[in-house]
Design a protein around this nucleic acid. Structure first.
Lengths: 221, 221
DNA sequence: CAGTGGTCTAGACCACGCT
DNA sequence: GCGTGGTCTAGACCACTGG
């Protein structure tokens, strides 16, 4: 069982959906089961995931239909990821220091060490956001510190954890106005994000200062 | 089949989870199947929903565990709902008029009519937010207009639709600073929300101006 | 009436973790 | 080797829709 059958079916459906107009029906679960030579429950598992993701929707006693692209679910987690291939970042600051006032966010002692990285995220050389990323020093190997670029690709943390985000309005901090290339009186949104492992322990804490002219925060659920 | 078996099991599990410490294991799917005299797939369906909601998490080859309450998923949709029993609102403006500049948001013609309601949401008499709610006139019956309180409880729309929200930083509009009881220079977050039916048609469009001192926008996913 | 999704059963084999 | 969740089968009945 290299890749499960239902994931193959899901991918196949996804490919076919791309050529279909919005609100058009897909084949019934029984038909799909015959076509893919699988049991109905296996097909259903594939369809369930697509419904869950907002790619399809079901109408009871009627059928399953292609959803509008506008309705595909977006959780904000993706903001943290490099969703655009064109996105890039440069690290402008980096240090290992005692947690002190950040200790409560990482749920460690004030005297424990953390890794603090400040970066500017860019797309086509335009600044999207300034991000302060805080890691727990003891969870990061020396080797990882020497490969910051990969460490700051937070996917591995996000995939196996849960992300909580809080949004705060503010005037752009003076030291970041320049980085974001906006006026010092500009109102912005700052997002506080905590990535936690499944057992609830914080792994990473992030403050993101968004450039409102380059990035709109959007979620669909 | 009054209520499906798996929903009964889900509720029973939910009740039991309330008495359990975070990260403690629940019984295995096979044990639960015996206990509830149901097939494993039925039990699994119940557990799946709880995992999906973030109440439980699974560790492959190990078991299923009680998740941290912090990790229970929150989509922002709930901001629009009256999640707190103590929450209340007063309508401060209400009219039926041509859509004009709002037409694109509701995807109707500029000369079509809409229902515009402005309300202040409060909790313990403190102003949480000012909300402009726009309905498509032709989708609202005369009877519903006479029962604004119920119409503005948007649950029925949200349950059967999809919600997209965009967040914008700004200085509080002068006319709302007073309603929110904040200074006229305060940076706030304004959320634009569109509720769409499954076929993608807009049903309701909402602009929410949040009082940053009373309400923090938070999501967990 | 035929067809749909929603629910349910009673089995099965797999990969993997732990002891 | 045993127990776990992950996947899968080949059926079944239900409530509901639409022709």
């Amino acid at each position: 069982m290299a890749t499960p059958r239902y994931l193959e079916i899901k991918q196949q459906l996804l490919d076919e959906i791309n050529g279909k107009p919005v609100n058009s029906p897909i084949a019934s679960e029984r038909e799909l089961a015959i076509r893919f030579d699988a049991s109905r429950m296996t097909v259903r598992n594939a369809v369930n995931e697509l419904v869950e993701e907002g790619v399809l929707y079901r109408d009871k006693n009627k059928g399953t239909f292609v959803a509008d692209r506008k309705l595909i679910k977006k959780n904000l987690t993706s903001e943290l990821l490099q969703e655009h291939d064109a996105m890039d970042f440069s690290v402008i600051y980096f240090s290992v220091k005692k947690a002190e006032e950040m200790a409560p966010y990482l749920e460690i002692k004030e005297t424990d060490y953390m890794l603090r990285v400040v970066r500017v995220n860019k797309i086509n050389h335009r600044p999207l956001s300034v991000e302060e990323v805080y890691f727990i020093r003891s969870l990061v190997s020396d080797d990882e510190i020497n490969h910051l670029k990969e460490l700051l690709n937070l996917n591995s943390y996000i995939e196996q954890g849960t992300v909580t985000q809080r949004f705060h309005p503010m005037i752009v901090p003076a030291q970041y106005a320049n980085q974001l290339k906006i006026k010092i009186t500009t109102p912005i949104i700052m997002a506080e994000s905590t990535i936690r492992s499944k057992n609830g322990k914080p792994l990473v804490y992030i403050k993101t200062f968004y450039n409102p002219f380059e990035k709109t925060i959007e979620i669909t659920s």
